[in-house]
């Protein structure tokens, strides 16, 4: 049984064989009990019709049939999520790479101050962000419209939050603004491990800073970049907070849930709506599993893609 090997050890009867399991045990045990079991149980719920109160009714694959064949909403949410992801992800990654590269520059002073300021959007309270952005982009009284009109760039105020495409752009902007600092912290942690000698040697060889960036920083940073891109794709596909801040709906919400024409209804918002707002638990579970398939497919795609480029 124990044909475990380590990077150093001999092939047979390895005294180190038990260690990987010991190291992994706490994670796996906690994960299994507290996260995996509930998720498996929820798979069971997805084959039922259940409002949380009345007894569950087993309905087989009906929820999945409805999800794929009769509910156009599910595909709309996939589309919305992807549009926002495509608007925001490339900008966020490139921008945070640039920022962290600049922050890593030896010319820079007040480094820690900038580290903190970049991170501020990530810790600014969502309620405040939602309020702020809805005031900024208000149709009649918003700051953005006032500025644009006074500059003569537009004639009449734009209804930013009232029109599908603009609403998606505003959400993407918030996503970029909120996340770039967090990503640059991860990238900066990665850059801090690149041995300075590499840069020194390159400078001696006469490389300019652009060259060192592309030939030293990027290659050295690969594992971290893979991490950043893959986790950003995964979390981007689970986008919830930013559109929810603006398009929360409800009896005292200024904007309908999911935005004008449901243009900012993401996959998770749709799930949340079904499971926790109109308590269609069985269908909600099937939305989540449908979503899981979509996310898994594209995450693995992005993983494969970035892993391939990792193996030089």
């Amino acid at each position: 049984m124990n044909t475990v090997k380590t990077t150093t050890g001999p092939r047979k009867r390895n005294p180190l064989a038990k260690y990987p399991y010991l190291f992994l045990a706490p994670f796996l045990v906690i994960f299994f009990i507290f996260q995996f079991l509930p998720i498996v149980f929820t798979l069971g719920i997805s084959f039922t019709r259940w409002d949380g109160i009345n007894p569950m009714k087993f309905i087989g694959l009906e929820n999945y049939r409805r999800l794929i064949f009769s509910d156009t909403r599910f595909f709309l949410t996939i589309f919305n999520t992807f549009v926002i992801l495509l608007f925001s992800l490339p900008f966020t990654v490139v921008f945070s790479l640039v920022i962290s590269h600049l922050m890593n520059s030896r010319y820079l002073r007040f480094k820690r101050v900038f580290e903190l300021t970049n991170f501020l959007p990530y810790i600014t309270t969502p309620v405040a962000i939602g309020l702020l952005w809805s005031i900024l982009f208000d149709w009649k009284y918003g700051t953005v419209n006032k500025v644009l009109v006074s500059l003569g760039l537009i004639q009449d105020p734009m209804n930013w939050l009232g029109m599908s495409s603009f609403a998606r752009i505003v959400v993407s902007l918030i996503v970029i603004w909120k996340n770039y600092g967090y990503l640059s912290i991860l990238l900066l942690a990665g850059m801090s491990t690149i041995p300075p000698e590499l840069y020194e040697a390159a400078t001696v060889d006469g490389a300019n800073s652009r060259q060192t960036f592309f030939h030293i920083t990027i290659p050295q940073l690969r594992p971290i970049l893979v991490f950043v891109v893959v986790t950003s794709v995964i979390s981007g596909l689970q986008l919830f907070d930013e559109p929810f801040m603006l398009f929360k709906g409800g009896p005292t919400g200024a904007q309908p849930y999911g935005g004008p024409g449901l243009s900012c209804l993401t996959m998770v918002m749709n799930f949340y709506d079904a499971a926790f707002q109109y308590f269609d638990m069985g269908y909600g579970a099937s939305i989540a599993y449908g979503m899981f398939v979509v996310i898994a497919f594209f995450s693995f795609l992005s993983l494969k893609f970035s892993m391939r480029s990792e193996k030089k």
Binding site: I135, D138, W139, K140, Y141, L161, T252
Partner: peptide
């Protein structure tokens, strides 16, 4: 009828 969104900042104001 003006076109403020009910419950929006502008509407409150």
């Amino acid at each position: 009828v003006d076109k403020l969104d009910q419950w929006s900042p502008a509407w409150n104001a």
